[in-house]
Design a protein around this nucleic acid. Structure first.
Lengths: 251, 251
DNA sequence: CTCCCGCAAACTGCATGCAATTCAGGCGCT
DNA sequence: AGCGCCTGAATTGCATGCAGTTTGCGGGAG
């Protein structure tokens, strides 16, 4: 097949494309924990060779989203309850750092962006759980990205994705309503600039997410990998990780 | 810490071997920031093909130790002063979590292990800086590994390595003496079990390491002119909305 | 002598091929 | 019928080959 010329100098990163697609499929629970990810199927679906698919799996494994056992088919990670708890513990500390850095320092455009993201969460409340879970996660990533600290962004993203994973393992039907209000409260706290207050807001927010999530196992079984991946195969690159959602498009 | 149970994110022997070797070479400053890492040289040196070397570089890039630019030779990462500062900020939070979890919970064997590690640091005081820096870093990783939280271990390791990198960039001749005493104090605090005390011990320890390391945002080692100029090149991209927007001495 | 252009070497991006290992299920044995 | 072995298909581990890009150097023009 004809290799397309890279019109955008960034989008010829095939590994990155696959990683983003799989990440998204995983956090939207299209790929459940334990789902198999054979290299050829992936390569075929995304139109690349096994080499590339393999490389992408390596990256995702480094992020903890995928488990890679030697000579075995890669699977979506299945974090144990304890690992999930640990992930939330780490996440709480990291996000406390995020809001501590951001409190009182947001500029207007950022506040606008946050508010419209939460509006999008609101709008998605009636939609599928998968989307609202993803949006809720992306709110936290959006927040982290405002620190302009690449390290912090990366770690918060990773750990948030992993927490998302555990949600799909241990959580029962999602009720995101309160989470949305808590997000609004956090924004308000950030604007107000009270460091301690907003840190404790974030802390209790994540605590409550964690305790809602970590109640009891509720496994469900899956479908065919190829079907699941079909919607993700050609990425609509618009939404990198977090971007202004399709609803309230500001500007 | 034994590589016995390699629940290590990355898969097999060969990639893991290369990663560990390079990590160590980097933190011992055998490979300075900016050093080139061509795939074939690596492959030849380690007796593997480029494919494997490439995969290893991908992993290290995910950890932030290596910079991977498309169609360009991979290089050892050269974190900016600000990135270094951010890394230390994250590290402080993570390690506070570590000691909070460990305070008063260490068993005798662990205490012994910690003490003998610090003894080793002591013994290496007269040796080359590289070794004592590595040992000091490994002390923190050893500590983290005692939490039995794989996530925490991974993040602490990563960020500690990155801080190490920073040290080789910005730090002047290392004086590890006080660090050793601080390590002993932390062990003592952990045994005693006073959570707040040991958290603040760790906090001030890392703070002092950071401030010893990040004295001035002026790199002094022989670096590429282009690297030095990099912060000036992107201009608006670099505008950090948070974090001392005014006082920052851009130089 | 300096600067610029262009070409060859070096290097990466990626696909493909082959050997080794695991997986699935059918057959024989008890 | 149950259990384990054995065999072929599926799948991974890894090396190599080819094409496209970058680098660096040498020669010619100014």
């Amino acid at each position: 097949m004809a290799p397309r010329i890279a019109s955008k100098h960034e989008s010829s990163d095939k590994v990155g494309v696959i990683c983003r697609a799989l990440r998204r499929a995983i956090i939207e629970q299209a790929l459940e924990p334990g789902a198999k990810l054979p290299e050829d199927s992936l390569g075929e679906r995304f139109g690349v060779s096994r080499t590339i698919a393999r490389h992408a799996l390596g990256q995702l494994a480094a992020e903890g989203l995928v488990e890679l056992r030697r000579n075995r088919i890669a699977v979506v990670a299945t974090p144990s309850w304890q690992e999930a708890r640990d992930a939330f513990d780490v996440r709480i500390e990291l996000e406390r750092l995020v809001v501590r850095q951001l409190a009182g320092k947001l500029i207007k455009a950022q506040i606008t962006a946050l508010n419209s993201h939460v509006d999008a969460e609101d709008a998605a409340r009636d939609g599928p759980d998968a989307v609202s879970i993803r949006l809720a996660t992306e709110f936290h990533i959006l927040l982290a990205s405002m620190t302009n600290s690449p390290i912090l962004v990366r770690y918060v993203s990773e750990v948030a994705y992993r927490c998302c994973l555990t949600l799909s393992l241990y959580s029962r039907p999602h009720s995101s309503e309160c989470a949305i209000n808590e997000h609004r409260a956090i924004i308000a706290g950030l604007v107000k600039g009270d460091h301690d207050k907003v840190m404790s807001l974030m802390h209790s927010h994540l605590d409550s997410v964690a305790s809602r999530a970590l109640v009891a196992p509720a496994p469900q079984r899956g479908r065919d990998l190829l079907d699941i991946l079909a919607p993700y195969a050609d990425e609509h690159e618009r939404a990198r990780v977090v971007k202004l959602p399709k609803v309230a498009r500001v500007r």
